[in-house]
């Protein structure tokens, strides 16, 4: 890559790592897998960087890349191998009053079927519109709406009325 382009890439990528990591972490629920997804995304982006000037919304494009990288990671068989029953806890501040609620909500999310969980996470944790989720998952908008409805319904049954519908 030409030096000025590499410099350009370096500035761009460095500033986006925290945000991309956050998206990947929300989707994968695992720090190391999230790091892998971000690293893979940025490595591919490096290779394509010379063509990126033709992309109208670069941030949206890269966001899509990292989501797809996460989804492909989850489809691999070894992604299902876990040496522990659940992923390691995330260190939190001792005085955080929402710790328990978060743990309960994450546990409930993990119990959702794969398709519903993916849709719910993309819709509500990654804040993507229905059309974007449908495009990312290669599903119709109707399917996405249906899976959102089913996923939220299941969560509501698991958690009671503490979960208000946002669909």
């Amino acid at each position: 890559m030409r030096p000025d382009r590499e410099h350009d890439f370096s500035l761009y990528a460095q500033a986006r790592i925290p945000r991309l990591h956050r998206v990947a972490y929300q989707l994968l629920g695992d720090r190391d897998k999230a790091d892998d997804a971000v690293q893979n995304t940025l490595t591919v982006l490096y290779q394509r960087w010379n063509r990126m000037r033709e992309v109208e919304n670069l941030d949206a494009y890269v966001h899509t890349m990292v989501v797809r990288s996460c989804l492909s990671d989850r489809r691999r068989w070894w992604a299902r191998v876990q040496l522990r029953e659940t992923t390691p806890d995330v260190p939190v501040a001792a005085d955080d009053p929402l710790v328990e609620q978060r743990m309960v909500l994450r546990a409930a999310l993990r119990r959702l079927p794969e398709g519903q969980r993916t849709v719910v996470v993309l819709r509500f944790l990654c804040d993507l519109p229905i059309a974007e989720v449908a495009r990312l998952l290669n599903r119709s908008e109707g399917t996405v709406k249906r899976q959102t409805f089913s996923g939220l319904g299941s969560l509501r049954r698991m958690l009671g009325e503490s979960l208000r519908s946002g669909a």
Binding site: F9, R31, Q39, T43, Y46
Partner: peptide, 28 residues
């Protein structure tokens, strides 16, 4: 957003290093 408590949650800091990305990109 019923998941606001998760979206607001602090996530572990990324360990991705831009230098590693550059090396991996060049190798690719």
């Amino acid at each position: 957003n019923p998941f606001a408590i998760l979206t607001d949650e602090a996530v572990p800091e990324s360990r991705v290093d831009i230098d590693d990305v550059l090396l991996a990109g060049r190798a690719r």
